[in-house]
Nucleic acid binder design. Structure first.
Lengths: 217, 217
DNA sequence: CCGCATCCCCAAAGATACTG
DNA sequence: CAGTATCTTTGGGGATGCGG
């Protein structure tokens, strides 16, 4: 590979501590890194798909982060075969092993995450992300479909994905606030439910409970 | 409380995504935050103790982070009673609930953490930190004492702490490289062992295994 | 001392425009 | 489509100062 100036390889900033956690943070601690990994956790994605799912990232930052993650052995770049050729990024085995970390972190964060506000951007995929981390792994077996605002996502046999479900057992329709209070207060009056209501009530019981009060500042 | 200019409350930067993980990162994602929490995980600490255990942090940054963490409900400031009065910082219940995240993250990081190099700073407490997260929870019951370079730390009944152990079953003496290869390659020829060698061999089997190769870049 | 605030400098993040 | 080039703004690192 030829040397070009812009490759000047910005010597990564490091904590320079001999500590497993400091080292982990050297790999994934920079801003946006874990969110990029969150997106790739769903499978390989193209550059522009990533941009779309990471509102506010700025294309240079994304390029830089992908370079860092590749250098760290967490992400690999692959070129799809000629017909409809395109580059995709995907997690390596080591990258995928962050799944447990992401889940625990998100579950912890969920406890102080209030209802959606106007400040929050409801980017494409937010619903599937939230379902995936907060509910899917603990869900009762069954087929759930959620239609919240613009988004449609589903949980099928403990797996969350974007889009509708085939032959869902229950379909929940509503807005983001409604679905929030459904899970944290078991209120079913703000959403509309079609299908197996009892199954939905089972699902509600596995949702993480928010902090008593305050703490959200 | 009176308003003074420097309180101008640096409006925290946020990802502004409605996502549990993005929210978690708004709380703990900034540089140094998780390392501060790692330190407080061992119990309340004074400002200067934190500075000492976080080489390179810069005093203004630490102050800023402690303010953020307090505002986020993760840390609280407490003033010890008059005799030897001093302020200490400690984790709230919500802050302590990050323990699982820290452990998983560190275990993940440990897999690509090579042997200590000259670049790495061996700050006070590094040994206890490493033992705590990588070995202690999975250790066989028993009393281990490690004397590695300047540091002394121990594992007693699955709990790591700084300093020697009372009546240790086994004492390991050596340097950082030696202890690294002891755990990753089960080599006992680079350290000296006094006491129950079999118990130590049991401990070695629970150490996380490093990645096959490369990846460390 | 301990617990910060201030100042200066530079590196990284953000925004936008542009190119192979 | 998949990024790079460039400019501006923000934040971190390091040193120092200062009140309690």
């Amino acid at each position: 590979m030829r040397y070009t100036p812009h490759m000047a390889m910005a010597k990564k900033r490091s904590y320079e501590q001999y500590c497993p956690m400091a080292h982990a943070l050297d790999l994934v601690g920079d801003r946006w890194n874990l969110l990029v990994i969150r997106e790739l956790m769903h499978g390989p994605k193209r550059y522009t798909d990533l941009v779309e799912h990471l509102p506010g990232i700025g294309t240079n930052i994304l390029a830089s982060r992908l370079r860092d993650l590749e250098a760290g052995g967490l992400v690999s770049k692959r070129v799809l075969p000629p017909p409809a050729a395109s580059r995709v990024y995907e997690l390596t085995e080591y990258g995928r092993e962050l799944r447990g970390v992401l889940r625990e972190l998100a579950l912890w964060g969920a406890r102080s995450l209030g209802p959606p506000t106007d400040e929050d951007e409801l980017f494409p995929g937010w619903l599937a992300n939230a379902l995936d981390v907060m509910l899917a792994p603990f869900a009762p077996p069954g087929r759930f479909e959620f239609r919240i605002g613009e988004e449609v996502a589903s949980i099928v046999d403990r797996e969350a994905k974007e889009g509708p479900a085939d032959e869902p057992d229950v379909v929940i329709t509503g807005d983001p606030e409604g679905v929030y209070y459904m899970f944290v207060d078991s209120r079913l009056d703000l959403v509309s439910v079609e299908g197996d209501r009892a199954l939905l009530e089972q699902l509600i019981t596995v949702a993480p409970q928010p902090l008593p009060a305050a703490a959200t500042a």
